[in-house]
């Protein structure tokens, strides 16, 4: 399909819509079954603000739960500062480990 489009010298923009009817959130569902406290996230951003590795954990987790997509975690030091600051006491460090494990299961590097 892409090859056909490129022949015409243009591409069709993908819609930016999140289509909740079609999103596959199984990955997120499997992980949140292990770490139930994740569901209580308030999106306050404390985790991202405190991260010495510069991981935007809030937005990473939000993308994972909303779209089932996972962006890179490779600068995470597993230091656990995000867990120390979370106002809802979400086990973020354990959550990150679960995400890494799942990704390995799915055969993708994190």
């Amino acid at each position: 399909m892409d090859a056909v489009k490129s022949k015409f010298g243009f591409e069709i923009n993908q819609g930016r819509h999140i289509d909740m009817d079609r999103i596959d959130t199984r990955l997120a569902d499997e992980i949140s079954a292990h770490v139930r406290s994740w569901k209580a996230c308030l999106n306050c951003g404390s985790c991202s603000a405190t991260c010495p590795g510069g991981v935007g954990l809030r937005s990473l987790l939000l993308k994972l739960s909303t779209l089932g997509e996972l962006t890179t975690l490779d600068t995470c030091l597993l230091c656990g500062k995000c867990f120390l600051v979370c106002p809802r006491g979400i086990s973020t460090r354990y959550l990150i480990i679960q995400i890494i494990k799942k990704r390995r299961e799915y055969g993708k590097a994190v």
């Binding site: 999140i18 289509d19 909740m20 009817d21 939000l62």
Partner: peptide, 12 residues
């Protein structure tokens, strides 16, 4: 709009 994701959203 999912304003945290900063993207429009639809759901049935």
């Amino acid at each position: 709009e999912d304003t945290l994701m900063a993207r429009p959203l639809k759901v049935t």
